[in-house]
């Protein structure tokens, strides 16, 4: 395999809160290869967004307390803020869930979309604007030249997200991190944006990290998938394999708990009992064990590492690591 474009190893990011130290990202390692779309799935508070923010060094008030983020031979956790600015928005771009709060309401859309090329490319205002208009048209904004003069509030939610994507692409970054890019949008608009992201990936070859809680979105977008729970990666592997044959009880249970549009018959859902853990006060051993239907004694004592299980997947589970298949009624 070729050298990964981005390599995150043993990343730890913590937050100090009144209740105590929160290990939002607790030893996360993964690689991103050129041109691929990698999904990071998990529920709120699992650390998926903080992982992305840590890569961009935007994790404040959290602190990166360990690990490396290797990108083009440098460790992004150690470069100066000045050097980081050269990477951020130029080589790694990020789009966020809420396009309203991530666009500045007092600047025209065209000006903002052109900002990365002015800052990083040193382009003058005119050239930046014309490239912004081209990019806005490319992401499907109708009459882009005219709409570039609009303010963000004059755009609909879907158009704002398109504008954010356009802004991210003006510098043709190698990595695009999309953090819940469609969560705030309606499904028909979500379909438009996902289609656009697929296009971007195909046309520009931009490697994409897609962060989402929606397993359906991952299924249609990502070649590889990482499942996070309570700050840790619990399972990783090719999307088709993880869905067909999950190797972690959390993934297994999650897939059985969601209704499917193409279900033939009405069968009761099989919920995951209990609640996601409190990050300040995690259970000992595997964080998922209080909700796990497969747990064995060891699960409440020792924390499993993320190890190879089967041919293509990795799982942090004592049960599957010992060769047991996940099966159940």
């Amino acid at each position: 395999m070729t050298q990964p474009l981005l390599e995150v190893s043993d990343l730890h990011t913590v937050f100090s809160t009144k209740e105590g130290m929160v290990k939002a990202v607790d030893g996360v390692s993964f690689e991103l290869h050129a041109g691929e779309t990698l999904g990071i799935v998990g529920e709120s508070g699992c650390g998926k967004s903080v992982t992305a923010l840590s890569i961009m060094r935007l994790q404040r008030p959290g602190r990166i307390v360990g690990g490396k983020v290797m990108f083009k031979g440098q460790d992004l956790t150690r470069v100066s803020e000045y050097e980081m600015r050269e990477v951020r928005g130029k080589e790694i771009a990020m789009i966020f869930q809420d396009p309203m709060t991530s666009l500045n309401p007092v600047y025209r859309v065209g000006w903002q979309v052109g900002e990365p090329t002015r800052l990083h490319g040193g382009w003058d205002a005119k050239k930046a604007l014309s490239s912004a208009v081209t990019m806005l048209a490319r992401v499907g904004i109708p009459s882009a030249a005219a709409r570039a003069k609009d303010y963000p509030h004059q755009f609909s939610g879907g158009m704002r997200q398109r504008a954010m994507i356009a802004m991210g692409l003006t510098t043709t970054p190698e990595v695009l991190i999309a953090d819940e890019p469609t969560t705030a949008l309606d499904v028909t608009i979500q379909a438009q944006i996902l289609d656009l992201l697929r296009d971007v990936n195909r046309e520009f070859g931009t490697a994409t990290i897609l962060i989402t809680h929606n397993l359906g979105v991952v299924a249609g977008m990502c070649q590889r998938l990482i499942v996070m729970y309570a700050g840790k990666i619990v399972e990783a592997g090719p999307t088709t394999d993880v869905f067909a044959n999950p190797k972690h009880p959390y993934t297994w249970s999650l897939l059985r708990s969601i209704p499917r549009l193409d279900a033939e018959r009405h069968e009761p859902l099989k919920p995951i009992e209990g609640l996601p853990p409190n990050l300040v006060d995690l259970p000992a051993g595997c964080s998922f064990h209080p909700r796990c239907v497969f747990k064995v004694d060891r699960c409440s004592r020792d924390t499993p590492a993320l190890l190879q299980v089967g041919d293509t997947q990795r799982s942090a589970c004592w049960v599957t690591q010992s060769g047991t298949e996940l099966k159940g009624a």
Binding site: A191, T240, F243
Partner: peptide, 10 residues
């Protein structure tokens, strides 16, 4: 427009 959580279908 609704994604189905199954890559083979999707």
């Amino acid at each position: 427009a609704i994604p189905i959580p199954d890559p083979k279908v999707e």
